[in-house]
Deep mutational scan, measured.
Amino acid sequence: MDALKSAGRALIRSPSLAKQSWGGGGRHRKLPENWTDTRETLLEGMLFSLKYLGMTLVEQPKGEELSAAAIKRIVATAKASGKKLQKVTLKVSPRGIILTDNLTNQLIENVSIYRISYCTADKMHDKVFAYIAQSQHNQSLECHAFLCTKRKMAQAVTLTVAQAFKVAFEFWQVSKEEKEKRDKASQEGGDVLGARQDCTPPLKSLVATGNLLDLEETAKAPLSTVSANTTNMDEVPRPQALSGSSVVWELDDGLDEAFSRLAQSRTNPQVLDTGLTAQDMHYAQCLSPVDWDKPDSSGTEQDDLFSF
């Protein structure tokens, strides 16, 4: 819950932080000083300027060897085509990944977070970031790969997607708890209302004896509580940590079903599988986004697919 609360507080303090972009060759504004600060901008989305290598189908939802083989196929196909790589912007948030063309600003792909089953910074092609997700059109699994400016960037994108998945799962947990509370309150309110109706004398007997209905007592009954809980029953509950912020979080049926399955089948359902080692994760978390744009010590960066 700490990640969720800190993310909400950060967004309320400075929503404009989320509009910064990394990996864009110096076009961005001043960047936060450390990885923790940038992680807090996830709610509205972190932007990464990358190059799209392509996509291939895979048979399993996750796995280092599986993704490595898929990336190898994608890279080989991209090299064989001889075409310049498409420059894209990857927007990562707890909602998922939005992929747009840098030149036309046209939407290429919009992947809900619950469809993503794996992401990684490839070991062999260490400047490549990739994720595996279920197609929104059918049940097939797709591996999408992107060329980053350097290994640090690939690791940073991988960690960002993993963190977005974690925050999304926490949102789901909060929403589920809130819905259970509202359902319980609604049920209790309905029981109270039913009890009051059972003990209320029939209207005919009131008229016969000349008694008047006590409207004041009726007004004191917990009807307002019942209506408050039943009027918006169809509205999706939102985490309290975000009250007053500009973010509107809505959970669709697909996300609810997917996270429910994860909660039942996995020990740590909030953790998205990645190909990063503990050492890689520690190294990337210690980086400032400013470091992502620094040239690798191995030599001059080449803006070309064939540089790796």
Rank of each mutant, 00 (worst) to 15 (best):
Y131V: 14
P222A: 09
E178V: 13
T267E: 08
D37R: 06
R266D: 00
S67L: 10
G189C: 05
Q20C: 11
H282G: 13
Q240C: 02
G96L: 03
D214H: 11
E142D: 08
A278F: 08
M153S: 08
D126L: 00
S135Q: 11
L147P: 14
D122K: 09
D252N: 15
S224H: 09
W22H: 13
P295N: 08
F48G: 13
Q279W: 11
E235W: 13
E250V: 04
P239C: 06
E177A: 00
V248H: 09
Y118C: 00
E33L: 10
A3R: 04
R95Y: 09
H125W: 03
K30D: 05
G25P: 02
L85Q: 14
A130H: 08
T300C: 08
K184W: 12
S6D: 11
T77S: 11
T120V: 08
I97K: 10
L31C: 10
Q264G: 06
D252S: 13
T56I: 04
K87I: 14
L251S: 10
P237G: 07
D293W: 00
L242V: 07
N232E: 07
V161K: 04
L66A: 11
T231K: 14
L215G: 08
E44H: 14
T38N: 14
R9C: 05
S140P: 15
V157A: 00
W172G: 01
A10T: 10
V174N: 04
G26N: 02
E180L: 06
S297M: 11
A76K: 02
A145Y: 11
A68D: 13
A208Q: 08
R29L: 11
R27S: 12
T36P: 09
K91I: 13
D234W: 09
V167G: 08
G254N: 12
V174F: 02
R73C: 12
T231I: 11
A3W: 04
K84V: 15
H144Y: 13
A121P: 02
N232T: 12
A168W: 01
G190C: 03
E177N: 12
G194R: 00
V161H: 00
D291K: 05
T149G: 07
T218M: 07
E170Y: 10
I132E: 10
S117E: 14
T267N: 12
M55D: 10
A130W: 09
F171W: 00
A70Y: 04
S297D: 04
K150V: 10
E217W: 02
K150G: 15
T209W: 08
G82P: 11
Q264K: 11
R115H: 01
P202M: 06
T274L: 02
G82C: 06
S307W: 13
K72L: 13
Q187Y: 05
T41H: 14
L99D: 12
Q197W: 11
E170Q: 02
T89Y: 14
L276W: 01
S288I: 02
V111P: 13
E216F: 13
W292V: 02
F171K: 13
E188A: 09
M46S: 02
E250K: 09
Q197T: 10
E235C: 07
K19I: 05
N110F: 02
